[in-house]
Design a protein around this nucleic acid. Sequence first.
DNA 1: TATCGATACATGCAAATGCATCTAGTTTGA
DNA 2: TCAAACTAGATGCATTTGCATGTATCGATA
Lengths: 155, 155
Amino acid sequence: MSGPTGAASSAVRLAAETWESLFRSQVAVMRKLQSGPAFKTLPVKEYDVLFTLSKCPSGQLRLNEINDKVLLSQSSLSRLVDRLEKRGLVERTAAPDDGRGVLLSLTEAGSELQKTIGREHVRDIAHLVGPALTSEEQRELLRLTEKLRASVAGH
Amino acid sequence: MSGPTGAASSAVRLAAETWESLFRSQVAVMRKLQSGPAFKTLPVKEYDVLFTLSKCPSGQLRLNEINDKVLLSQSSLSRLVDRLEKRGLVERTAAPDDGRGVLLSLTEAGSELQKTIGREHVRDIAHLVGPALTSEEQRELLRLTEKLRASVAGH
DNA sequence: TATCGATACATGCAAATGCATCTAGTTTGA
DNA sequence: TCAAACTAGATGCATTTGCATGTATCGATA
């Protein structure tokens, strides 16, 4: 096949296959991770919110910022935070600069639980990813996925 | 830092960061894709089952095979298939070689709908992934994620 | 500054999900 | 050969999710 149509079509196909592969690998890894004992006490999605808060320098994040990182609707995140708050793992505070906003932060208990689960979680990840790819391949995968994420985030 | 402890810890950290990046990029892309008009008529997860069937050479798959590809519990998949069946998009058949098994196949309507949504979906993917990574980078990302998936699938 | 549209988050409600369990068919091994 | 353990898939039920909408606040404009 020759000409721009053929080239465009194969570019489209490559993009589709790349996404498909990325998606399936994510499913395969996530399936293993979430079935581990680390998430008996707390579902993965709830852990992810604790984790996101733990990584943030100020220790506080707006709900809409968290919502960007997580594959959940706004309302689902709101209720997920309800559950975390009822368990005493996070705290809601009014945002100082925006009367509509809510700041979320970890409580001491939330921080402890995040660390406990996190340690085991990281071990599980290493056991799955470590044997699969060399260090260089991991660095390259990290670079490519970060580049993709950044591009997609900026529309 | 020197010695095996330092090296091991940095290997663990690299694996964790790689997974984190892969996961976040998947979230970012999926969020864009599923909000597109292609999935107004059919949720992404249901489309994914039609797509999986469409790609399979025999045109038939066991439910447990489909379950490996999708991040859903066995019971959720069973009900998802109920919905597809009620809409006349797929058909359940008894597996010939295993009295417990169910074979799933696309109906004509299911195949049509898959193609219609699929065309738009592929375009959306190309618009997101194409500008983000060069062709070579996409091929490398495809290779790395496929290698990861294969390794994880084989325990 | 008064108004109108946009944004942040919460909530009612129907739909989707997962866990535990059930039924039925298959495999193993004594 | 037959009972026990295992696997495939369906179903009851409580939890989680998303859509639509509500309330409050913000920002732009006339």
